[in-house]
Design a binder for these strands. Structure first.
Lengths: 238, 238
DNA sequence: TTGACTTATACGCATGATGCTTATAAGCAT
DNA sequence: ATGCTTATAAGCATCATGCGTATAAGTCAA
């Protein structure tokens, strides 16, 4: 069995791409960057960057989060690694995709500072956790062309998000410190792309033991104000 | 904003590592390879190999499966990508981990052909889907030292396996074409590391609509033979 | 051939989760 | 005060699940 030192092989480039999502007006949306120059110019891509030679993958994701999206400190989670040889015409690039869910306000800095960023609506053609690519839409519902295999990455992020919604505290990442059960349900419905039964949702979430009632109520509603709740955080692993 | 062409960056090596598992005598087991030479000599590692510059990640996993484990054709699924800078002392190596579940017989070729391979019992210290590293044990229950971060990879594979058990057809990969409900339950119990209620398991699986009764019965049992079932395959996505 | 033994399979019941409907409460606007 | 809207509670049917028990159907030994 012949063996070469591993340094002898031609090496691919390794990048991280970030699917940074939020819920805006009851719909899932993701941060996209308009590409210029070398490859896929004019198309829209997920914010990403190459992994430094002494940088961990999570570290690279955090750096891209801070530098490109100006959102240092958000919780990002690894999604999947995409490595088809022809996914980038310029050369071999393997991309480790990460995703995070953030309140809409956290996108404001990035959007105002960089003209090539936009927060685009995300739609999928499949129900539940079937899986498949996603589409990105501009304000008028027109389709935005996605660069590379980013439609697949985006679709997988939606699928994973739906799968984790029930047992993880991921939906709370979208809400302020205090929120009502109605707001929480609206977040779930946006992510799942389906409407949920209100009493059942209430019961299930209240029985889950991860909500703390504050006794306080929302204000300025024009109708009966709902009670405000707080999320009880638990530690999580990969 | 200064920008270099992406070819200018120092590039990491990219490898695939395979967690090839089975159930043997009611316990989870995984294929390990004894390391020699350069790094981590004497420790046990998951079979793996570097990704070719024109090879997809899935393709590299299939190649390692065929070359090192002599199991061409098995279904492998991407697990997670490990990229801590110091995980391999020799240099920067990012590893994309894959896992598969196979019947014990499929390990026979590899074990007889290569003297540095073994099928080791896998144990975890946590229940359910808590997560954490796994241990590899030799026949006598002694702990086998694992190379690199492979204890973490193995642990994550067990966690993922447990999570996918219910809704995916993964347990059927361990069974022959025809099997009894008892055998199926034993597989589930080995993977979950817990005992299950027999009537409830029966009812749930039969109601699931993914089992086809054959009308035939097992033979040579010494007790009442159970009916043989067949798995109804559905297409699956990532 | 018969009966003891072991496991398969069916049945019944209690419990808990869930979908859905209806009733009541509580704030706001007029 | 009255009507509007939504919050919250309560009731009920249905379904999944855990668990115990009864019966069936083989093997094995005498």
């Amino acid at each position: 069995m012949s063996r070469r030192a591993f340094q002898d092989y031609a090496k691919p480039s390794v990048a991280v791409d970030l699917v940074l999502m939020t819920v805006r007006a009851g719909r899932l949306a993701a941060l996209l960057q308009r590409r210029e120059g070398e490859a896929e110019a004019g198309k829209w891509a997920l914010p990403g960057g190459f992994v430094g030679i002494d940088e961990s993958l999570d570290g690279a994701a955090a750096r891209v989060l801070a530098e490109k999206a100006r959102m240092a400190g958000a919780w990002v989670e690894q999604l999947y690694t995409f490595g088809a040889p022809a996914r980038d015409r310029r050369g071999r690039v393997i991309s480790v995709a990460y995703f995070a869910l953030l309140p809409e306000e956290r996108f404001a800095d990035a959007l105002s500072a960089a003209g090539d960023l936009m927060l685009a609506d995300v739609a999928v053609d499949w129900a539940g956790q079937t899986g498949g690519p996603a589409r990105a839409l501009d304000g008028g519902g027109g389709r935005l062309p996605l660069a590379f295999d980013h439609a697949d990455i985006l679709g997988l992020a939606v699928k994973r998000l739906r799968g984790k919604l029930d047992y993880s505290g991921i939906a709370f990442a979208l809400l302020p410190e205090l929120f009502t059960l109605r707001e929480l349900q609206q977040v779930h419905e946006a992510i799942l792309g389906a409407t949920l039964n209100k009493p059942a949702f209430r019961r299930r979430l209240l029985a889950g033991g991860r909500l703390e009632a504050t006794g306080r109520r929302e204000a300025g509603t024009g109708f009966r104000p709902a009670e405000l709740f707080r999320h009880i955080r638990l530690e999580e692993r990969i």
